[in-house]
Each structure stands twice: as structure tokens, then as C-alpha cells.
Amino acid sequence: MSAVLIRLSAVTKSYGSGQARLMALQGIDLEVAAGEFLAIMGPSGSGKSTAMNILGCLDTPGSGQYLFKGAHVESLSRDQRARLRRRFLGFVFQGFNLLPRTSAQENVELPLLYRGDSATVRRAGAARALQSVGLAGWEQHTPGELSGGQQQRVAIARAIVTAPAVVLADEPTGNLDTQRSHEIMALLVALNRDHGITVLMVTHEPDMAAYARRQVHFVDGRIARDEANAHPATAPAAPTETV
């Protein structure tokens, strides 16, 4: 495996104070190397979403260290974290979060706009990203004219259009039927394999986690299990057994 991309050391996070204080993360240590495909699993309230927010630099640890590409994320300002996200991270959400009444093209261009790319660069980038998710020719369709699976593909195109180091997918198949879910997973696997993009995916579906090469199980704010998946699922459509 290549160099360590992400290193969490003794990361905690709590919400509220006093009696209502809730320890969402109670000391997490995690290392992710570049090019990994990691599934984060666990029941709700296990802290996996909190961990994801911290990994995505949307939130900062309460204590402990988060090194991303050697940078101490916990000491970065709000704007510095935003710059880091725009440069290195891509996000895929359960609810797609596409801008309504906006063409697929413009949705995918959005991160490039914030990066300050010119119109030509944006158009080319969006076209390339849409092509790589199998949506060439759908550029001018708005989310309302696309199926759920297609919308999530647009969202994935938006996440990869900046050629990020890491794609963070939060329940990317949560709103999709089984068939579409497997198609989306195949897409994420391909991105990970062909483009070397590190994929961090939160899911509670073992079928989907089976595509990952490493599975991390959260229970009560701690990592309960962290295991490699020697035989990640590859075939779309057919349900795969968990390891």
C-alpha cells in the first residue's frame, strides 16, 4: 500500500454539556492509505457519521489529532478546511443534494466554479466527469428529469470532477433500489480501481460494504473491528455474501 493519507489519533468528539453530554467518539485511531476503499459500518448512534464529518473536514475533533496529507486538520480555520475540501475531497450524499432545476452540467461544474476555473475548463471537466459515470449525453437534464440512480451518478460526477484524493460517500445507496445500488457501487469500485481515488463510504448495508476492501465497524463511539476484505464483491446486480 502507498503512503498514509489519513491518520486519526485518539480523536474524540462530544456534543452538549453537563448531564446531556454525549460522547459521540471516544478515542478513535485510524489510518487510511492512499488508494484504499474503506467501508465504515455500525448501528446508528455508533459515531460513524461523526467520524465521517471529521474525516471530511466538515467538523473538527474535540481532542486528538487528524492528519490529512500531513496537515493538522484540527488546527485549521474554517476557511482553510474549506480550501482543503475543495482541493482534495469529494462528497457523495444519501440524498444526492443536487441543485434543483439546474442541469447536470451546471451541477457538476459547481466545485470547479469555486475553484475558479474558466468556463471552458469547467465545461470540459463536467463533460469528462459525466462521461466517466456513464451519463454522456445527459448534460442538459435537470435532476427532475433523471432517475434516482442517474441523480446519484451526477452527484458522483460532481464529487470526482475536481480529481480529488478522497471521495467520502455517506450512505450513497440509501435512497436507491438494489439494482441501482449495485450499479453505484460498481461505479465507486471502478473509480477507486481505475483512478486511484481513495473511497471512504459509510453504509449499514453489508451487501454494499462487501465491495470495500476494508471494513471498519463502529460501536458506541469506538472502532470495534477493523478488517480487510480479501475478496471484495465485483459483480453488479447479484447479491454478494459478506465476509
Binding site: 471530511g56 466538515l58 474554517r78 476557511d79 474549506a82 480550501r83 475540501r85 475543495r86 482541493r87 475531497l89 469529494g90 462528497f91 450524499f93 440524498g95 443534494n97 441543485l99 459547481l110 466545485p111 469555486y114 475553484r115 460532481r158
Partner: peptide, 13 residues
Amino acid sequence: REIGLRLAIGALG
């Protein structure tokens, strides 16, 4: 949600 998305994908405040 749109604002959240914009901030998440790296828009500055």
C-alpha cells in the same frame, strides 16, 4: 441544504 452543499464542496463563507 443547497448552502450546506456549497459549503461542503469547498465554498468559503
